[in-house]
Structures are given as C-alpha cells and as structure tokens.
Design a binder for these strands. Sequence first.
DNA 1: CTACGTGTTCGCCTCACGTCGAACATCTTT
DNA 2: AAAGATGTTCGACGTGAGGCGAACACGTAG
Lengths: 117, 117
Amino acid sequence: MTRETAAAPTSPTSTHRAAPEHVHPRDVPLETALAALSDSVRLTLVRELAASEDWERTCGSFDVPVRKAALSHHFAVLRSAGLIEQRDQGAKRINRLRKQEFDEHFPGLLDLVLRQR
Amino acid sequence: MTRETAAAPTSPTSTHRAAPEHVHPRDVPLETALAALSDSVRLTLVRELAASEDWERTCGSFDVPVRKAALSHHFAVLRSAGLIEQRDQGAKRINRLRKQEFDEHFPGLLDLVLRQR
DNA sequence: CTACGTGTTCGCCTCACGTCGAACATCTTT
DNA sequence: AAAGATGTTCGACGTGAGGCGAACACGTAG
C-alpha cells in the first residue's frame, strides 16, 4: 500500500526499511515529555529543528557534541515523547518537529522551551 | 537580628537550625526545572502544594509512597529548581510553592503541570 | 531530664541514562 | 560490483538518580 500509481519518483520513501515506531503526544505522560526536554543535547535538537524551514532536518545535520550512536538514541527518546516524527528518504532519515500535535497536548511547553535563553 | 521586640511568641521561627539553601528561579537552568518536574513523586508534591491554602504544607503531610529520606531528597531537588521555599517553624519545616517567582521565569510551565491529568 | 516527633545526612544498593566503538543494514555513488 | 554515506543496534562502561535503614540533630511534650 501507499503505492505510487504513476512513475513519479518524487520521494524515494524507502522500501525494505524498519519504519520507526511513533508515539502520539496524546499517549505521552507528562513526566516523559518533561524528561525528554530536560537534556541539553535534545533541547538543542528540538531548537534547531524548530528553527528550520518546515521543522525538518536529517539526523546528521545537527550541531551536537555526540557521536552517531548517542544521537540515534536521543532521537528515539524524542520520538517516544511524541516530539518528533521520522520519515525515511533514501539513506537519510528526516526529522520533523510535531509542533501542532505536541502543542495541543502540552500547550505552552514547546514555546517555553524555544523561547527560553 | 529579626528579634521580636515585645513578648509575642507568634512564630517560633527556630534558632540553631541550618537554614535550607534556596535558589531563585532566575538562576535555574531550564533543564533543571524540567528535570525537577519530570518525576512523579515530585509532581505529586508540587500539585498537593498548589492545592493547599497559601501553597503551604509541612514535609510530612504529603501522600507519597516514599520514606523520609527519599522525601527529604525530593524537597532538596525542588528547592534547587526554585520551585519551593522552606521555612522552619519549630520542629516542622514548612514548604511553600514559589508560584509567582517561578511563573515569571518559566511562564506556563507550572500551570501546565497543575492542569495536566 | 527524658521521651517523642520531625527532618536531614550518611552509607549502600540498584537501576536507568548518556556515551562510545564496532558491527550491521540500507541506500547512493562510482 | 565495490566503495561510501547514513543511521541503528549491540555490548560495555561510568555516572548519577532514587530508594532504604540507621544514626544524628533539633524542637516539643511529659
């Protein structure tokens, strides 16, 4: 399913690839949301993401002082907190800040985090 | 200093007692504030405190599933996060939620926490 | 003075978290 | 096909957080 009808190779949305498990902000306990945002590396990720056009960035495009393994882990945490959504595009993984949905369930939190400092 | 002029034994604000070190919300990093609130026990403390008249309660008056030692630790965390202020009154220690000051520096955060669930 | 109540501090234990390198899987480029 | 780029997963490691009981300190009640 989600099959391209015509030959429009717009987005090579990957094929044999483990789709990341997403959690909707609705199902995220407040503690989890707060914990996800209480780490400076993740805070940076969220902020850079928010500062980007359409809130999108590939995993490797962030300016954080940790290696790939740790980065990957942080993204998993953000996913579990309903803060980001990940979509594969070829070899790259695109991260999107779920601003609207997150705001609906934790009004003001993201704005606070983005405004602060 | 802070000497009662007349004989008005209103508040026995203690004498030889280690005054708890307080941190003003102004000097609290966002990460610290979020981390302090990302624990369910502390969340309970803050909520019960907020639900109390004048936001005050003695340490032992909270309904949390931990022993004295752990409780004491949690209060220290809340203090370091600028969330509470502690004042000694005789043998008891009174906790006050620093709503206003905290709100000034982390607008919306406490309200979110108090509203949620 | 002695006994009790209220909290804090001190070890100690356990578990979760953040980090890394190495190996692996996928997709892209050549 | 071979090499490179992009991420994830797997152990391992160090650190810190949260929990407890015991001991201590201070104030209160008898």
